[in-house]
């Protein structure tokens, strides 16, 4: 079984200049290894919508790879996004699903159907290719080729669940992180610093 830490390290080794849209438990591990923080967005205040944000970025900047670090609980909550992504068929979108079978952030309760095969579901929707890994060596060996091929691709990672014991970080500053990251990413992608303050956090 994979660990979050190893999986994020291997993904970062192959990301190149990809935008990474992450959510839930893997976000913490991703920030520990990411070498391009201006290209990272952690969807922390809209559970389940990482795949949809990633699709928008991929459609908006089709020359740049976009990697979505999704999770099983989140994807179940936004399952239709598999069909939406398949329908738009962005060649630059790589959808990684960390499958731990639980809602880690709320203490480890099981998701409604822990046995869902997300790779098969994505294949049925029409993703170009799908993959499933449960150990790090095979992921490490296969990932460079997967990320150099056409999307949309779904990569399911069977990971060991880590129920979170501490509460969710809910401060004004923690909630300001997402709008700040999105502005930094827009500046990086467009070269224009034209998105001013708005909303309750900035």
């Amino acid at each position: 079984m994979l660990t979050y830490s190893d999986a994020c390290r291997v993904i970062n080794d192959s990301r190149n200049q990809a935008v990474v849209v992450t959510t839930m438990t893997q976000t913490k591990y991703w920030y520990q290894v990411s070498t391009e923080p201006d290209l990272d967005v952690g969807i922390s205040n809209a559970m389940s919508k990482a795949s949809s944000v990633a699709l928008g970025v991929a459609l908006g900047d089709p020359e740049r790879p976009v990697i979505c670090l999704d999770s099983d609980g989140s994807l179940l909550m936004n399952f239709g996004s598999l069909a939406t992504i398949a329908g738009m068929a962005p060649k630059n979108l790589y959808h990684v699903v960390f499958n731990n079978g639980i809602y880690a952030i709320t203490g480890g309760q099981p998701v409604p159907a822990p046995g869902v095969d997300y790779a098969k579901a994505a294949e049925a929707c029409g993703y170009v290719s799908t993959h499933r890994f449960d150990e790090i060596e095979s992921l490490d060996n296969a990932l460079p080729d997967i990320l150099s091929g056409p999307g949309p691709v779904l990569i399911e990672l069977i990971v060991k669940g880590e129920p979170q014991s501490e509460g969710v970080d809910q401060t004004w500053e923690s909630n300001a992180k997402l709008p700040r990251q999105l502005r930094a990413l827009r500046k990086r992608l467009t070269g224009s610093d034209d998105w001013g303050p708005g909303g309750p956090y900035i």
Binding site: V41, K49, G56, V57, L59, G60, S81, T84, L189
Partner: peptide, 15 residues
Amino acid sequence: GEAIPVAAGLFVAGQ
């Protein structure tokens, strides 16, 4: 529920 997140991603990418 996907529509606004997709639009947010598009806007971030300059669309």
